[in-house]
Amino acid sequence: MQPSQTPSRVNFAGWLYVSPLVLVLVPFFVAPILVVLAASFFATDGFGGLTPGFTLASYVEVLHSALTLKLYLATIKFTVLTWIFTLIIGFFVAYFLVFHVRNQLLAIGLFLLCTVPFWTSNIIRMISWIPLLGKEGLINQVLLAMGVIRQPLEILLFSDLAVVIAYVHQLTIFMIVPIFNSMARIDKKLIEAAIDAGASRLDIMRLIVVPMSKSGIALGTIFVVSIVMGDFFVVKVMSGGGSASVVSAFYEDVGVLQYPTAAASAVLLTLVLVAIVSLILRTVDIRQEITR
């Protein structure tokens, strides 16, 4: 290679390196976003026809609707509950795998076991809750047989509880993986040094493991939050239509050909998510933590 390369040649090589990513991102990410953004400013004839132009009418409509706030609150409720449960479960599963399973082969085996639910489709995973949680389901039958309850519990299925259960079931792995990853990089000698200094289990957890798993927790949080906030399918199926989310509302809009309102809602949701993610990135310098 020549030591003196002209800047433009270096530039060209640089573009060549990133071109695969660009070739994927531009048509499948940037272009759709731009289309949605454009559509959100268009006017509609009410029958699915779009009139190119620039109007904020759709935004005004979305922001003025009392439903919007309600939907956001509902979605945030699901998000926070799911986040709390996936975080607790994910953290302890990762902790167990990293610090309590001595045999590395076993740890990897158990880790793969966590991915077993993903061997089937999302829909099957959700449907399979019905025989368990349903009115005639396993849990109700057992509780009835044990005499704990007289009437079958109805809140088990087609309820907010069921929605959260389904989310936690689906998304815990997204917490486990990044937390496992950052915990696995904690030098075991640090734990020993902490024990040597007289730290209790709780101290070690509080002062060493949690702070050093911060980047994993942040990454997991980003995954879970953005998936839950961007979902409508689980809410729809598991709540039996009783609950809605932000996305389910604009899915309905699409169904009735209100494209600009749907697009405006989508843009709004994207902005909210960007704000949340940047807030998370502000508290944890993921880039620095990962390269540490």
Partner: peptide, 20 residues
């Protein structure tokens, strides 16, 4: 006995300082 009860302290190879 635990290290604290022994009143020993260890300095680890490559130090094991808490990086955070």
């Amino acid at each position: 006995l635990a290290p604290v009860q022994r009143r020993t302290a260890m300095m680890f190879q490559s130090y094991a300082l808490f990086p955070h």
